[in-house]
């Protein structure tokens, strides 16, 4: 789908290697594991917690032009849901392809109802547009 997933923590690449080889849950991972030792990238994306000196669980979608299109940050103790991440990625791909459409909250995949050319006529009429 033209996307690369990169995990980022303050661990070195050596620790990433050791963790991936040790933890059986990670046996089949395909993504790159990046090292942000000084926390500079975590700071840039606003997920560096100065109190604990670690990054929060932040997920960021960057388009092929280098623009930040989506951001989600969870606190340390709640994991992220890959289905919701993929939904948001697919929605971004879709509207990048079809700039005159927008994906409503219930949109899940190509073929689901979108709103086409939202404008003056649709103000206050989203319900009708979604049913139509």
């Amino acid at each position: 789908m033209g996307v690369d997933i990169v995990t980022v923590s303050r661990d070195t690449k050596f620790v990433h290697l050791a963790w991936q080889q040790d933890e059986k849950e990670l046996a089949n991972v395909k993504y790159s594991m990046a090292s942000d030792v000084k926390g500079d990238q975590a700071r840039l994306f606003g997920v560096y917690d100065d109190g604990i000196g670690l990054a929060l669980r932040g997920t960021f979608l960057i388009n092929p032009e280098g623009r930040l299109m989506n951001a989600e940050v969870n606190f340390l103790n709640v994991g992220r849901n890959i289905d919701e991440l993929m939904r948001k990625f697919k929605a971004n791909l879709y509207v990048a392809k079809k700039p005159n459409e927008v994906c409503p909250s219930k949109w899940k995949d190509e073929g689901d109802k979108t709103l086409v050319n939202p404008g003056a006529k649709m103000v206050g009429k989203v319900h009708e547009a979604l049913k139509g």
């Binding site: 923590s9 990054a55 929060l56 979608l61």
Partner: peptide, 12 residues
């Protein structure tokens, strides 16, 4: 022309 998902987490 690739999309990127950056996935931050506290530590290995």
């Amino acid at each position: 022309k690739r999309w990127t998902i950056l996935f931050f987490y506290p530590a290995d």
